[in-house]
């Protein structure tokens, strides 16, 4: 499903090259649940952004479902991001002055789906997360846990193959955090490939596989039993 080969991400900082990722080799199979750990600034988000076609890599090769992403233009990458990838971010990345429904509809507005079906699909996704009755509320009227559910509904509304979560529990209390992880792992059990960046060892242990990053390199890649 996901194949990274010698992938590096270089930022120019004060005229000097800074490696946010260095020669990363990584393969993730369809349906896997992978957690990514590492200290702050180690490159976890960078890795996730590259997997999610949000960011361009500086060198190396990235194959997603056999397609060479590294050579694609923004338009094509965006289409793939829209079609195959869902994101759940720490700060939810929702549009605050809009309704829940609008936020969940958003990815579909950029897809090829006809406008007539968009709303029904969004409502289905909300129902899936048990927040169908919140559809008309504005985002800024919701609790943190509800916001994260909206974000997850938005991430799965296009029925993507891959779900990428960057510290999804970071802004939630431990109970709501565990709830969120439970929802994500349920989705994983239904077949979606799940990559979760986390600081929390309990969450990391729930994954089938844990990758640890340090200074832009993968240092360990362990299968949990």
């Amino acid at each position: 499903m996901i194949q990274l080969h010698q992938v590096s991400k270089i930022y120019k900082v004060g005229g000097q090259d800074f490696y946010a990722l260095r020669d990363v080799n990584l393969t993730i199979e369809k349906g896997e649940f992978v957690s990514v750990c590492g200290t702050s600034g180690s490159g976890k988000s960078t890795l996730l952004n590259i997997i999610g076609c949000l960011d361009f890599l500086s060198s190396g090769q990235y194959l997603l479902k056999g397609e060479n992403i590294s050579q694609m233009k923004d338009e094509k990458q965006s289409a793939i991001r829209n079609r195959h990838i869902g994101f759940v971010l720490q700060d939810f990345a929702l549009i605050h002055n809009q309704t829940v429904l609008y936020n969940v509809m958003l990815p579909l507005l950029f897809s090829k789906m006809s406008f007539r079906k968009v709303k029904a699909h969004a409502m289905d996704a909300l129902a899936c997360l048990g927040i169908r009755d919140q559809a008309r509320k504005k985002i800024n009227q919701l609790s943190g846990g509800q916001k994260q559910r909206v974000a997850i509904a938005r991430a799965i509304v296009t029925q993507p193959d891959i779900l990428l979560a960057d510290e999804p529990t970071g802004q939630l209390d431990s109970h709501t955090g565990m709830e969120t992880i439970r929802i994500l792992s349920e989705l994983n059990k239904k077949g979606i490939t799940l990559v979760v960046v986390t600081h929390d060892p309990t969450i990391a242990a729930m994954a089938e596989r844990t990758i640890t990053i340090s200074d832009g390199r993968i240092v360990t890649d362990l299968r949990n039993e």
Binding site: L54, D74, E75, Q77, S78, A79, R81, N82, R83, F87, L89, A93, L94, I95, L106, P107, L109, F110, S111, R154, T158
Partner: peptide
């Protein structure tokens, strides 16, 4: 907001 659009699959030119 546009960053969120981008996240949801809207290309930068769009």
């Amino acid at each position: 907001e546009l960053a969120v659009w981008y996240l949801c699959g809207c290309s930068k030119p769009r």
